[in-house]
Simulated scan of single mutants.
Amino acid sequence: MKTLLNIIWLVFGGLWLALGYVLAGFVCCILVVTIPWGIASFRIAGYALWPFGRTVVDKPGGAGVATTLGNVIWLLVAGIWIAIAHVTSAIAMAITIIGIPLAIANLKLIPVSLMPLGRQIVPTSRPFVGVYR
C-alpha cells in the first residue's frame, strides 16, 4: 500500500515538490552561511519524494541553541511561506477522494518544513504515522 501511495504521490505533486526543495538546497549551499539549511532542504526533498512509510522525529541529543536559532531564522524567512503552500496544496488535493491521502501527506510535511534543523526522517511500518500526533 505504501508503494502505491508513494507512486501516486510522485505523479501528482511529489516530484515537483521535491525539485523545489532541491533547488532551495542548491541556493542555500551556494552561500556558505546557509549550508545547514541547504542540507535540511535536501533531506526534506527526499522525504517529499517518498513520504508514505516515513516520519519525522527529533534527533537524539536534543536541540541546542544554534539549532533553535537556526530554526527561528528559517521560520521567519521561508518556513511560514512553505507551510502556507503545503496547506494550500493539501486543500486542493483533498477535493477528490483519491487525493485525501495525498493531502494528508502534504500536511505531514509541514512540521519539518517549519523547523527543519534538529530533525531526522525515519522509516515506519505504517504509512500515516506522524500525521495524527
Rank of each mutant, 00 (worst) to 15 (best):
L5T: 07
R119H: 13
I80Q: 09
G14W: 01
R54E: 02
L117Q: 03
M1Q: 06
I91C: 11
A63E: 15
T96M: 00
W37D: 02
T55H: 00
V72Q: 07
T67I: 10
I110S: 06
I7Q: 12
A105L: 03
T34G: 04
G70W: 06
V56Q: 03
W9R: 05
G25Y: 02
K59Q: 15
G53D: 11
G20S: 08
V33W: 12
V33R: 11
G70K: 04
V72Y: 12
I80D: 04
L15N: 09
N106E: 14
L76I: 14
G13Y: 03
V32N: 03
L5F: 15
V11I: 15
I30P: 09
L23K: 08
P116I: 13
I8R: 07
G53L: 07
L10T: 08
V56K: 01
T68K: 14
T124Q: 09
T124G: 07
A103W: 04
L107D: 05
W37N: 02
F12E: 05
L31W: 01
A105D: 02
A94T: 10
I95S: 03
P60C: 01
P116F: 12
P111S: 03
S125Y: 07
T124K: 07
I84W: 10
G61F: 10
V11S: 08
A94R: 07
L4K: 15
L69G: 03
T88Y: 13
I100V: 15
I30M: 13
R119W: 01
V22W: 12
I97E: 10
I44Q: 05
Q120C: 14
P123A: 12
L107P: 03
A48Y: 02
I110A: 09
T34V: 10
P127H: 12
I8A: 08
G70M: 05
S89K: 05
P116G: 08
L19F: 09
Y132D: 09
I104G: 04
I82M: 09
K2F: 03
V27W: 01
A66P: 00
S113V: 07
G38N: 08
V122G: 08
Y47I: 00
T88G: 15
F52M: 00
I30Y: 11
K108Y: 01
Y21M: 15
V87L: 08
M115N: 08
R133V: 10
Y21T: 01
W9S: 08
